[in-house]
């Protein structure tokens, strides 16, 4: 029998998930940044700034942004590492990378490299990067453990992994509001602004299927990281996990 996994709340054949996710991001790519601002009330910018500040990235560092999409983190990393450093913006989806390229040019940011890759099989040598980041990408990946092991492999000793992702809030009140917002408002707004209600339904569902803070921390440690801690942002709606390879 075929192995299955989840795609939002649906069970799908494991081998099919990647192309289904690709369909979602092919469809939302051109409106992705606008929708991010609208749906998070701009908060995603603050979450990303916090991620960059937590990275401790320095001039001359090598940074790989996985599932980097439209390049928000890559733009900020590029400023931190300077001309002696290296920033690679990577994503499995060509349409998202295309939007990323436009975004960087519009922001006057040059010198970032682009690579289309699957985070489950990263085509870099062991011990290459000072920092690997993945923002709102991990929950879309079929085999998260394999991807985390790859991230660990390509980080240098002393390297830092940053995972910014939707997570679980402990506040009952916030949870109620958030459920209503995610399942009743988000897909409708997706329908109105991006003409794509289904993709935003998937995005809301995939958030609920994503491991909670403690589970993800265990996964990061199991992947070989010596340290992992998480910081809850916006009441735990989002969490930043920081893993360190010693």
């Amino acid at each position: 029998m075929d192995k299955t996994t989840h795609f939002g709340f649906k069970d799908v054949v494991t081998d099919d998930k990647q192309s289904l996710v690709r369909g979602v991001f092919d469809s939302v790519a051109s409106k992705y940044d606008l929708m991010n601002d609208v749906l998070s009330f701009g908060a995603h910018r603050l979450w990303k700034r916090y991620t960059i500040a937590s990275s401790n990235v320095k001039v001359g560092d090598k940074v790989l942004d996985l599932a980097g999409g439209t390049g928000d983190l890559a733009i900020k990393f590029r400023k931190k590492v300077g001309d002696s450093g290296q920033v690679i913006l990577s994503d499995i989806n060509a349409a998202m990378l295309g939007e990323g390229r436009k975004n960087l040019i519009n922001n006057g940011v040059f010198g970032v490299e682009f690579i289309q890759l699957n985070a489950q099989n990263i085509p870099f040598a062991d011990n290459t990067f000072d920092c690997v980041s993945i923002a709102f990408g991990l929950r879309n990946i079929t085999d998260k453990d394999q991807a985390l092991a790859e991230m660990h492999r390509i980080l240098k000793p002393g390297g830092c992994l940053l995972i910014l992702e939707f997570s679980k809030t402990d506040s009952e009140l916030l949870k109620k509001f958030y459920d209503f917002y995610s399942f009743s408002v988000m897909p409708k707004l997706g329908g109105i602004i991006a003409n794509d209600e289904d993709s935003y339904q998937y995005l809301a569902e995939s958030i609920r299927k994503h491991p909670d803070q403690e589970t993800l921390k265990t996964m990061v440690l199991d992947a070989g990281f010596s340290f992992c801690e998480y910081h809850n942002l916006s009441g735990g709606i989002v969490a930043l996990h920081k893993g360190i390879k010693v």
Binding site: A43, L46, R49, Y50, A53, T169, D170, S171, Q213, K217, E229, Y230, H231, N232, L233, S234, G235, G236, A239
Partner: peptide, 19 residues
């Protein structure tokens, strides 16, 4: 930088002991 960053995450009293 710190002023901007600290306003938002620090609002979360709920998670003070959780990571």
């Amino acid at each position: 930088e710190l002023t901007t960053l600290l306003v938002a995450p620090s609002k979360s009293n709920l998670f003070k002991d959780k990571g």
